[in-house]
């Protein structure tokens, strides 16, 4: 399954990229985060993050479909 991943802020720096298209067997955002944390050494734990699929907040257990765009959301600091 092919997914599009975008990275922001600390996670963009740790991944060394803003986005990528990925072939993965991950069926959910939770599984995807585990895979990518292993690859890039993300320092934030999953319970510190939110996740968005196709530009809307999502559950970590939502089934992913090919072509989905996934964004992990580190603790926010607007204002």
């Amino acid at each position: 399954m092919q997914l599009k991943i975008q990275y922001y802020a600390l996670m963009r720096e740790q991944a060394g990229r803003s986005d990528e298209t990925l072939d993965t067997a991950a069926a959910t955002p939770a599984q995807l985060y585990q895979e990518l944390a292993g690859r890039y050494g993300f320092t934030l734990s999953r319970d510190q993050l939110k996740v968005a699929v196709n530009s809307e907040f999502s559950d970590w257990s939502r089934p992913l479909a090919t072509g989905d765009a996934v964004v992990f959301i580190p603790p926010v600091a607007g204002g």
Binding site: Y8, L10, L44, P74, P75, A77, G79
Partner: peptide, 29 residues
């Protein structure tokens, strides 16, 4: 303003006089 600070996906990187930098709420959390 309270809700925006709490909920909207915006991030802030601070640069310090001593040369360090850090993403607020991420690196020292």
């Amino acid at each position: 303003i309270d809700e925006v600070k709490h909920r909207v996906p915006i991030w802030k990187k601070e640069h310090y006089r001593n040369g360090d930098s850090g993403w607020v709420n991420c690196e020292r959390c």
